[in-house]
């Protein structure tokens, strides 16, 4: 029996040695980004230019990213959370302050983005992309005018509607339709939004994630709630689609670049951020992902057709009823409860 214990100890010890050997001095930057959110050839260019290797991983939602970051076992140097998530991570002390002297390209960013509610003056984050949420519709299947969330509650389009399988985005639609703020901390308003979503359930074909583009292209549904970039991705290849921002207002959002507090390669991370803010690199990424760029020099390089996209670069008056998600703090429990109850409803 004693021998046995010894054997186990030896195995564990030798394994830990092996593990120890695998790390060496070469800098590898761990980048954690949304799926399909960068022109991946840019990563190779960065490695060629700086000699820093990149380990690139992706996540589907902010919530997935947060779970992975808080539950440990991962060591990311550069992450791309959205507005309300940055606010939350900031509150919880998960972010590292940026050294702006290492990011000279910051001057390329439009001044309008320097004073965003969740992070004023680029203290912890710099803008990567921004966009809106609206309704993508198939003109061959929809003959009404699409300019309001109401169409998603129209019996006529039963089983032809796709909603997002994402908590805040979907609750937001109901809140806006009811004329509430999407950052409401009023339980009654949330309950009403929940009832509205439950009432909509029989009309909805499915609650989907990244596959929404394919499903719309294949003609599985007529109407879908999508992010602006996805809509223009579909529309640039298929003429039968349109994209509308509802008049009741909607969400406009920012995905910014941050460095987590416990990142191992902060210097390389700053280099990478500066690289991404380069106008040329920004152009390649914008061209690939189709979202709105906050980089004014990149914007100037875009085609006029792209610059004129109302859903991507909306005028100020159109944005009047639009809001940015804020972190509801502990009130998130109520959002979680409402979402779970809505999901569990028959």
């Amino acid at each position: 029996m004693k021998k046995n214990v010894l054997l186990v100890l030896i195995i564990i010890l030798s394994l830990s040695f092996l593990y120890g050997c695998s790390s060496n001095d070469e800098v590898v930057l761990n980048v954690y980004n949304w799926g399909d959110y960068i022109d991946e050839s840019v990563l190779d260019d960065f490695t060629n230019e700086t000699g820093i290797k990149i380990n690139y991983e992706t996540y589907p939602t902010n919530e997935d990213m947060l779970v992975k970051l808080t539950q440990g076992g991962s060591n990311y140097d550069v992450v791309f959370p959205s507005d309300y998530m940055i606010e939350k991570m900031k509150k919880e002390g998960m972010l590292s302050k940026l050294d702006k002297s290492l990011i000279p390209n910051l001057e390329n960013i439009d001044e309008n983005f320097s004073n965003l509610e969740f992070d004023k003056g680029y203290e912890y984050s710099v803008p990567y992309f921004w966009g809106t949420v609206g309704i993508l519709y198939n003109k061959n299947m929809v003959d009404d005018k699409v300019d309001s969330w109401d169409i998603l509650w129209d019996e006529k389009y039963k089983d032809q509607i796709l909603m997002m399988d994402s908590q805040r985005d979907t609750i937001m639609v109901a809140q806006k339709k009811l004329g509430y703020s999407m950052n409401s901390k009023n339980v009654e308003e949330l309950e009403k939004a929940k009832e509205l979503l439950i009432a909509q359930k029989p009309l909805v074909l499915a609650y989907v994630g990244d596959n929404v583009k394919d499903m719309m292209i294949q003609g599985e549904a007529a109407l879908a709630v999508v992010w602006s970039g996805e809509a223009y991705g579909v529309m640039s290849e298929h003429e039968e689609f349109g994209f509308a921002l509802p008049k009741e207002g909607s969400n406009y959002w920012f995905d910014n670049i941050v460095i987590p507090k416990d990142a191992k390669n902060k210097e390389a991370a700053h280099k990478f951020i500066n690289f991404l803010l380069d106008p040329e690199i920004g152009f390649r990424n914008t061209d690939y992902v189709g979202y709105s760029t906050p980089n004014k020099k990149t914007f100037e390089m875009l085609d006029d057709e792209v610059k004129a996209r109302k859903g991507a670069y909306p005028s100020d008056e159109l944005l009047e009823n639009f809001e940015v998600f804020l972190d509801p703090g502990d009130f998130i429990e109520e959002y979680n409860r409402v979402w779970t109850e809505f999901k569990a409803a028959n």
């Binding site: 947060l66 779970v67 359930k201 074909l205 989907v208 979680n336 999901k343 569990a344």
Partner: peptide, 21 residues
């Protein structure tokens, strides 16, 4: 089920992966 048919397994998955509870 397209996210409409929620079973107990889905509830558990949601709590772990999305709601962080």
């Amino acid at each position: 089920g397209g996210g409409k048919e929620v079973l107990i397994g889905n509830l558990i998955e949601q709590q772990f992966l999305v709601l962080n509870n």
